[in-house]
Computed example of a mutant assay.
Amino acid sequence: MLKVTGLSKQFQLSLSHDMQVNPFQNLSFEIAKGKFMGISGPSGMGKSSILKCIYRTYLPTLGEIKYDSARYGPIDLAKATEREVAHLRKSEISYVSQFLKVIPRVSAVDIVAEKLLPSGIPIQTARLQAEAMLERLQIPRKLIQAFPATFSGGEQQRINLARAFIVRPRLLILDEPTASLDKETKQSVLELLSEMKAQGTTMIGVFHDWDVMERIADHILDLQAFVLERV
């Protein structure tokens, strides 16, 4: 489903380009359909940057990111057009970050339901599905119609997760999705991730909680070991 070859990312830290950071170089891996690969390594080794390159928030400096899409067939995400990337994000690739960015004064249920509308699902049906997903993620019913700007960090993260999970994507990218969640909600997330894997969703992610990652990941890429192998 996803094959990364020779991936490198370089950041310029000054206008004169005389200061550079290379968090990862010549990175290669692949993930089969319905499998979950976790990424581990010390802070600063580029874990989140790898995910952002796959989602195309960052443009890789070098390398290929071959993704077997439903819309376009095999496509290199490193070279795809902005239009192609936008279509893939809308229909089959979801990304969960640590931060919720939404329009103010829109209710939690509508923020989640909005993800279903491009597929032609009626708004009332989408809201019912959104309510069910929010309840599975331990959002109290009294908050479903409230504005997430007033929520706690953990509650906002559950909105992030609900938006990603509700569309049942082909490829799910997770950047510290459980960092601010309590034990009960983490268990709900694990159950949903297991269901999605069983239905064929391919996943790649970084987890603050090592125990959670070990329970869900089929394989863990250790970036520190990867670097040491090449020294």
Rank of each mutant, 00 (worst) to 15 (best):
R105M: 13
E64F: 00
Q10V: 15
I220H: 02
T57C: 10
E64A: 10
R105H: 13
G153V: 09
T201P: 03
T202P: 06
L137V: 06
I159V: 14
K47H: 07
S107Y: 08
L190S: 11
T185V: 09
L172F: 12
L100I: 08
E229I: 02
I111M: 10
I216R: 11
Q199A: 15
Y72C: 04
V112M: 01
L116C: 11
L116M: 14
I121R: 05
A32P: 13
T57S: 13
R136Q: 14
Q156S: 04
P122C: 06
D110Q: 05
Q157Y: 03
D182H: 03
V4N: 11
E114P: 01
S48L: 08
L172R: 05
Q138H: 14
G153H: 12
N22E: 09
I204R: 00
K9V: 10
E176K: 00
L228S: 14
A149C: 07
S188R: 06
I216H: 04
S48D: 04
T57G: 03
Y55G: 12
F147L: 01
S180V: 13
I123V: 14
Y67F: 15
E114C: 12
L88D: 00
T201L: 08
A126Q: 06
V112W: 01
I103V: 15
S16F: 15
T61S: 15
I159A: 00
L174Q: 03
V112S: 03
S180Y: 06
L117T: 02
P118G: 07
S28C: 10
I216Q: 05
E114W: 08
E92L: 05
G38V: 01
F99A: 13
E176H: 02
T125W: 00
Y95N: 05
M1N: 07
S49C: 09
A32L: 13
A126G: 12
I216Y: 07
P118S: 09
G120D: 06
I54R: 09
A32D: 13
F207G: 00
R141W: 07
L190G: 13
K183E: 14
P42M: 00
Y67N: 00
A86P: 03
G38A: 09
E92T: 02
L13E: 12
L137E: 03
S152F: 10
D209Y: 11
L171Q: 03
T185N: 02
L62Y: 10
A113K: 08
G44E: 04
Q187I: 09
A32E: 15
F147I: 12
D175Y: 02
Q10H: 11
Q25F: 02
I65W: 01
R230V: 07
D222G: 01
A130S: 06
L27M: 12
G44I: 08
L77D: 12
P122D: 10
S119T: 12
L221K: 03
K186S: 04
T178H: 00
E84F: 03
E92M: 05
L117I: 14
S107A: 15
I103P: 01
G73R: 08
D218E: 10
D218I: 04
I93A: 05
A217N: 12
